[in-house]
């Protein structure tokens, strides 16, 4: 079913939020407000927006360490995400997580994880729990192209296929695992093909085109929900920045970068929708206000109290654990 113009503008606006939020995060990193690792999502916005907007509120999503965008699209307040990047007490994990571990139980965003591919079996566990309870929720597990070289990815997909679990693995193929091009790490470069032998329905989509991503994701989500079956969706995308803030990305050519910039997922949708200059300015202003507010909130928030140092190591056994997180 074709998406309405209004829906498409909604997708554009979410992509724009992720873009401007990440640009600001990069800037704040430069100012020393954010430290440690910081992996920006700039260029890949169509993947998170296209996939996650195909989920219901009760569904689950999990990601790797390039996950600020997934959190934002899932509805986690930008202020709480920025505050977590700043290491503040108002952050999503009260400053215990950081850039790679943004998570929100309320939004059923199971988080960012820092070990390549290690999040996939966790997503499998949620898919298992969904079937165990019979509640028909589905799980999207995002991973990078390099994570496809981890054994646990295949272990997880095998079990998902064996037991018919509603797990959708979304490969964000941005062409490089850190500085190593896909072809230098994987003998088969059409990554979706690598899961076909496991009996998992697998396909690829142009990950720079949010409409195509959304349509594919909707189809696979519906299939997972109705038939309780796993799938793999390879989204071919590109990151415009380096792997992390420390990476000038000298392993790729200017020409390559420029070619992908012409497919910029945000600007190309703007142009396709023929958004007027005034409308675009209004959209930009709206997003800028949100991002400004997130930085102000993070700046003004307190550091975690020293008394929190040894908190959250073990839950108390008070039998008041939530029925589900």
């Amino acid at each position: 079913m074709a998406l309405s113009r209004e829906t498409q503008i909604g997708l554009l606006s979410r992509m724009l939020l992720v873009r401007r939020f990440e640009e600001r995060a990069g800037q704040q990193y430069g100012l020393g407000k954010i430290n440690g690792f910081c992996h920006l999502y700039i260029g890949q916005e169509a993947v998170a927006v296209g996939c996650l907007t195909a989920l219901d509120k009760d569904d689950y999503a999990i990601s790797g360490y390039r996950e600020h965008g997934h959190a934002l699209v899932r509805g986690v307040p930008p202020g709480a995400v920025m505050a977590e990047l700043f290491g503040k007490a108002t952050g999503t994990s009260r400053g215990k997580g950081g850039s790679m571990h943004i998570m929100s139980a309320e939004h059923r965003f199971l988080g960012g994880y820092g070990i390549v591919g290690g999040q996939v079996p966790l997503g499998l566990g949620y898919a298992f729990a969904s079937k165990y309870r019979g509640d028909s929720t589905v799980v999207q597990a995002f991973l990078g192209d390099a994570a496809v070289n981890q054994g646990v990815y295949y272990e997880s997909l095998n079990m998902a296929a064996l037991w018919n679990l509603p797990l959708i693995c979304i490969i964000e193929n941005n062409g490089y695992g850190m500085g190593t091009a896909v072809a230098r790490a994987s003998a088969v470069t059409e990554l979706y093909k690598k899961s076909e032998g496991l009996g998992v329905h697998s396909e690829w989509v142009d990950g720079m085109d949010v409409i195509k991503v959304r349509e594919a994701a909707e189809r696979l989500v519906e299939r997972a929900r109705e038939e309780s079956k796993p799938a793999v969706l390879e989204c071919r995308t590109y990151r415009f920045r380096g792997h992390s803030m420390a990476d000038p990305a000298t392993y790729r050519t200017k020409e390559e970068l420029e070619a992908y910039r012409k497919q910029d997922p945000v600007l190309s949708l703007r142009d396709r929708l023929k958004i007027t200059e005034d409308k675009w300015k209004a959209m930009e202003a709206e997003v800028k206000a949100v991002v400004d507010a997130s930085v102000k909130f993070a700046d003004e928030s307190p550091e975690p109290d020293a008394s929190e140092l040894m908190q959250y190591i073990h839950p108390t056994n008070d039998n008041n654990a939530p029925e589900r997180a």
Binding site: R94, G97, S104, E106, G111, Y312, I313, H314
Partner: peptide, 8 residues
């Protein structure tokens, strides 16, 4: 439990 500040 720690990384999520008690959310999970």
């Amino acid at each position: 439990y720690s990384m999520s500040a008690g959310q999970f």
